[in-house]
């Protein structure tokens, strides 16, 4: 297999949190690679650093040491503008705690990534298409009739599904999902997993964090994070 098949490569990732004199070494040389079209699940105990690793992969945080390459390009060498583009276009991130904007409706939250990348003129021209895609995504996650609601009017699971729809808005090459089924009952969680599987079959690369073995088994490959390293 040639090296170029990897869409994402992380090597020797170190991350240490310093709180005064206390140091918490969360990641101690974690390696991870995902091929294009792969569905990878990261499992590990609570506090093992799964979220931390995923944040680093999504360029939301910086490793103390080690490199992350996306399609062969080192994130650490990208400028601010490139990183913004990376977060906006290349990856879609689903947070463990959803992180939606309360002032915007569900639909507006979903189309936010498109809004951010478009200028005023671009947005006015492309608004129709963006809204159409946003509604399609909401339909896929079963929230079409909640489009005009506000995030605080939704249940936890519904917010999570909104966050997934937002992550998919700009058709990212890589979907990073932190516990996407963590707050859902098994039926709804199953629906989300089916959605992810469907996306994966259509060619979507997915890296998913979960602490649930049963959920992890739905992925193509399971990586276990323990003691700051990938086992």
């Amino acid at each position: 297999m040639s090296k170029n098949d990897y869409i994402l490569e992380a090597q020797g990732i170190h991350k240490t949190y310093r709180l005064g004199i206390a140091e918490v070494s969360v990641l101690k040389g974690a390696d991870l690679a995902a091929k294009k079209g792969e569905f990878v699940a990261i499992v590990g105990a609570s506090g093992s650093g799964k979220s931390t690793l995923l944040h680093i992969l999504g360029a939301l945080d910086k490793p103390d040491n080690g490199s992350v390459r996306f399609e062969g390009r080192d994130l650490g060498k990208m400028g601010g503008g490139e990183l913004n583009r990376y977060r906006n276009k290349m990856v879609g991130f689903v947070f463990q705690f959803y992180h939606l904007l309360d002032e915007l409706s569900v639909l507006e939250n979903v189309v936010l990534p498109a809004m951010v990348s478009a200028g005023v003129v671009g947005w006015i021209m492309g608004r129709g298409n963006a809204k159409k895609r946003g509604l399609e995504l909401l339909e896929q996650v079963g929230l079409k009739d909640r489009a005009s609601h506000k995030p605080y009017q939704l249940s936890g699971g519904e917010r999570q599904r909104t966050a997934i729809a937002r992550a998919l808005m700009n058709e990212p090459k890589l979907l990073l999902a932190d516990e996407p089924t963590g707050n859902l009952d098994s039926a709804t969680g199953n629906g989300i997993l089916e959605l992810l599987e469907r996306l994966n079959r259509a060619g979507q690369t997915i890296v998913m964090v979960t602490h649930d073995e049963r959920v992890a088994r739905r992925a193509g490959r399971i990586i276990t994070l323990a003691d700051g390293k990938v086992k």
Binding site: G58, G80, G81, R85, R87, F93, F95, H99, L112, P113
Partner: peptide, 16 residues
Amino acid sequence: TKDIGILKSVGASGCD
């Protein structure tokens, strides 16, 4: 400020 984090995570620049 949390909104700032959210906006930046979907690709908004700090200046914006």
